[in-house]
């Protein structure tokens, strides 16, 4: 497959479960780009988590709002932008403390951004007045 800035856009409803549509689409594109199975699995989890953040924390599961996922294929990398239309929110970026969670001192959720950071090569989260964007990049030869 010859890449050269091919772009795929997916719009999913703001309901939990639909993140799997974006996840599988990202995996299909990564497979065409000849990413390894390990990297594809990493990417699937990262896309699912970014979409879940957008659905839950960005769009607040609003039935009138969509999550916009853009996959941009380049020769050396795959970029995934996940955008919501919600108010700015601050995802947890530090490593959650598993001990505190096991001991019941913290809620057990809050792993999304930590997983994303550890599964893709680059991640950037930004908030604009019109919504929030998580940009993730994985490189073919890393």
């Amino acid at each position: 497959m010859t890449q050269q800035n091919k772009t795929i856009e997916i719009h999913i409803p703001s309901n939990m479960g639909y993140e799997k549509i974006a996840m599988e689409s990202g995996a299909a594109v990564a497979k065409l780009m000849l990413f390894s199975d390990d990297r594809i699995n990493d990417l699937k989890t990262a896309i699912a988590e970014a979409c879940m953040n957008a659905i839950e924390h960005g769009n607040k599961t609003s039935p009138t709002e969509k999550v916009f996922v853009t996959l941009t294929v380049d020769d050396s990398k795959l970029q995934i932008d996940v955008k919501d239309k919600g108010k700015p929110f601050a995802p947890v970026t530090d490593k959650p403390d598993i001990k505190e969670k096991i001991e019941g001192k913290e809620e057990t959720r809050g792993w999304g951004m930590f997983l994303i950071k550890n599964l893709v090569d680059e991640v950037e989260f930004s908030s604009q007045p019109e919504g929030n964007t998580t940009r993730m990049i994985i490189y073919l030869h890393k």
Partner: peptide
């Protein structure tokens, strides 16, 4: 399929 909510 397991997501972070499932891990929680």
């Amino acid at each position: 399929y397991i997501n972070s909510g499932g891990i929680a």
